[in-house]
Design a protein around this nucleic acid. Structure first.
Lengths: 142, 142
DNA sequence: CTTTAACCTATCAACTTGGTAGGTTAGTAT
DNA sequence: ATACTAACCTACCAAGTTGATAGGTTAAAG
């Protein structure tokens, strides 16, 4: 029951890109220098984010990455799903899961389904822009 | 980001015990027959629940397990923490974690801390008695 | 046609998950 | 006493995940 480094790094990268956004593409090298994350490891994460249409990538000199949408229009949910995959709290609720044979009699299924919704609602309510502007001392009230 | 079978099985066992509660201890054999879970695997889960003071265990003939408190006074949170360990959504928030060096500047930490609270509040609001009485068709509104 | 930077594939050690196997301890009944 | 029962304890194992690293390939700009 953990969000892995992939998801956490991805959020840091997205915030970093939002903070340094402009016309130009930002090469991974710059992000790595600021965030102190292994470049090779980040490469895979960037690919996830690009394939999910959250980032624009550009090869070659002057290339790099930039946000594909405004930071206000990208949620933490978008980023986490992109890198962590399905955020279903139990395997039964995975999109790829075959339907559970005891679903009809399962006393806990509604609890899990609703929990899934709680998770989705929570992260869908948080945008990259929102994270960007937070001072570390701030506390959320949701 | 998944609750493992340990936590899910534990909840099923607790509900089963609540449904068959009375004066007597219920041997694991009976639970296994009803729930169709590997007895050997369940043994470890029962030990967790017993050590967390959620179950009373009795050796020998006529022995077995029973709930140590009323089903109304045991929450899903109690059960999940007992079997899954710390339910912190990121390692930084684990009780056993060494304090993170970038905590002060971390833009996402408040989001994670609050998410932890959301999880805790959700499962703390659900009791074994509540799960027991649910018809499968029911939906939660929290 | 060289430089730059994204992209792709393979590999790896450490850890977790979901079990299984076999033996030991504690309590009950005859 | 001693047989029986049922919890408890330790060790092991295959498969999958995590958090990387290594090295090469493709695409774009100058």
């Amino acid at each position: 029951m953990k969000i892995s480094t992939k998801g956490r790094y991805a959020l840091r990268v997205m915030i970093d890109l939002a903070e340094h956004s402009g016309e130009n593409y930002i090469p991974l090298r710059d992000i790595v220098a600021r965030q102190e994350i292994s470049q090779k490891y980040l490469e895979g994460i960037m690919t996830d984010l690009t394939k999910s249409d959250l980032l624009d990538a550009q090869h070659g000199k002057g290339g790099g990455y930039k946000l594909k949408r405004d930071a206000e229009d990208i949620t933490a949910w978008d980023v986490l799903v992109s890198t962590e995959g399905d955020l279903a709290p139990i395997t039964c609720l995975d999109k790829s899961a075959e339907p559970c044979i005891r679903a009809a009699e399962c006393k806990t299924l509604p609890m899990w389904e609703n929990f899934y919704k709680v998770i989705r609602d929570y992260f869908s309510g948080i945008t990259i822009a929102g994270l960007m502007n937070k001072d570390s001392g701030d506390n959320y009230v949701i």
